[in-house]
Design a protein around this nucleic acid. Structure first.
Lengths: 232, 232
DNA sequence: TCGACTTTGTGCATTACTTCACAAAGGCAC
DNA sequence: GTGCCTTTGTGAAGTAATGCACAAAGTCGA
């Protein structure tokens, strides 16, 4: 069993669900900071982040005790602590492979640059696209993937290629020593242990919406419609 | 105690976690169908979808008993059942508001069209963009949002505008009777009860990756680095 | 028809996450 | 100081999701 020693409950074990919400809090806090708010209560921050305040407090308590009872949280200080916990106080060199519309959207997305991510390379296999200037960078041919990763210290790769190309890119990237991959291609990537893959499928959320919308309209899947295929 | 109303063949409550995985199974099944696979075991399908097989079986059991013991699941039949459950056997008219790179990527995304979603309108506030031809549609000015929704039976709206514009678009959309919104803008939308909002933040997954990457490198947040701001 | 074999569907134990509710901590007025 | 007020941080209770392990149900060859 590969699990934490029962001895050490104080180990840096932040629940996954909490980690997933920290970026949300960070965004809300940045919004407050822009409006020059100095201090915020868990209640107000929870509203701004769209969660329940008890959950917010418990989440923050996993990072440490950074609030002041009777007052709330210092906005700047909390931004710093969450950023540090997420590793956003350091500079991450990111390469984006696949410069279609999605790759372009990502390259231009302000939310990356403003959070410690630096787009260090844009690569594409299509000669038509190579050479384009996007977000201050020149698109390079994906043949040079390995050298871009090595020379520019890339530690996170974003895959935004068509589905059929994704696994091959993934393999090459891993061979170059990258262990963190963000995959936008609609395929399940096979990777060795120790490599972290996170995926975003743009259509999944839409399908979940359709599920709920359907229930609003008619209380569930259409009944009485029969399957016409062969079941054998 | 499972009480079923005579008209409902089975309990209607499918866990959220299950609903969120159904699109994943559907994608894996479509991949199998393309390769002309007729039947699949929970074990194989689980691998293809990147989940554990017990979980897969439990998820599918919430939809009904569609497998055959000793054999597995009929691929086509299961595709049909999951699609029906998710509401993808009907046609959903979707409008995309905000035609930047992301909006274009979404409009061209095959995963939408192939799953029962029909892009019925592309709208943008920028006169420069209005009139462009994208994915077989002409971009319209967002002034016409209400009329597009009403005339084309739009029931789901995708917001891909810059953050500052999102809430206003959201309000107008809701006023037009839409109750399902997919939000790509990095803001928390305020909506009345009964309206479903799902959000996708392209940078959240990247931040979660950074969190894990940081731990691989140095076992946690950089220590000894002190906060330089004013706390009290 | 039978028996060996495969694979589903699910009860149950476990783990993870959420929410409640309140004592303790600190600020602030006087 | 003292006492009131606000808000945090957290045990404890409640809820949801996961994974194990196996009986039941079905296939298939002989």
């Amino acid at each position: 069993m590969i699990r934490r020693t029962p001895q050490q409950p104080r180990e840096r074990g932040i629940p996954d669900a909490t980690v997933a919400r920290l970026p949300l809090y960070l965004r809300a806090l940045n919004g407050l900071a822009e409006r020059a708010v100095a201090t915020v209560s868990s209640e107000d921050l929870a509203v701004a982040a769209g969660v329940n305040s008890a959950k917010l407090r418990k989440d923050l308590s996993h990072l440490g005790s950074y609030g002041t009872r009777g007052v709330g949280y210092d906005v700047q200080y909390l931004i710093y602590q969450i950023s540090r916990e997420l590793g956003l106080t350091q500079d991450w060199a990111v390469a984006i492979v696949g410069v279609g519309n999605l790759g372009r959207a990502l390259a231009n997305y302000g939310g990356f640059v403003s959070r410690g991510f630096r787009v260090a390379g844009l690569l594409d296999a299509d000669p038509e696209v190579v050479g384009d200037h996007i977000a201050g960078l020149v698109v390079e041919h994906s043949d040079g993937l390995e050298s871009v990763i090595a020379k520019r210290g890339v530690s996170i790769v974003v895959i935004a290629t068509p589905a059929p190309a994704a696994q091959a890119v993934c393999d090459r990237v891993i061979a170059s020593g990258v262990t963190s991959i963000l995959n936008f291609a609609p395929v399940v990537l096979t990777v060795p242990a120790g490599v972290d893959v996170r995926k975003v499928d743009l259509s999944i959320e839409l399908q979940i919406l359709a599920f709920h919308e359907q229930r609003k309209v008619n209380g569930g899947p259409v009944m009485g419609e029969e399957w016409a295929g062969e079941v054998s």
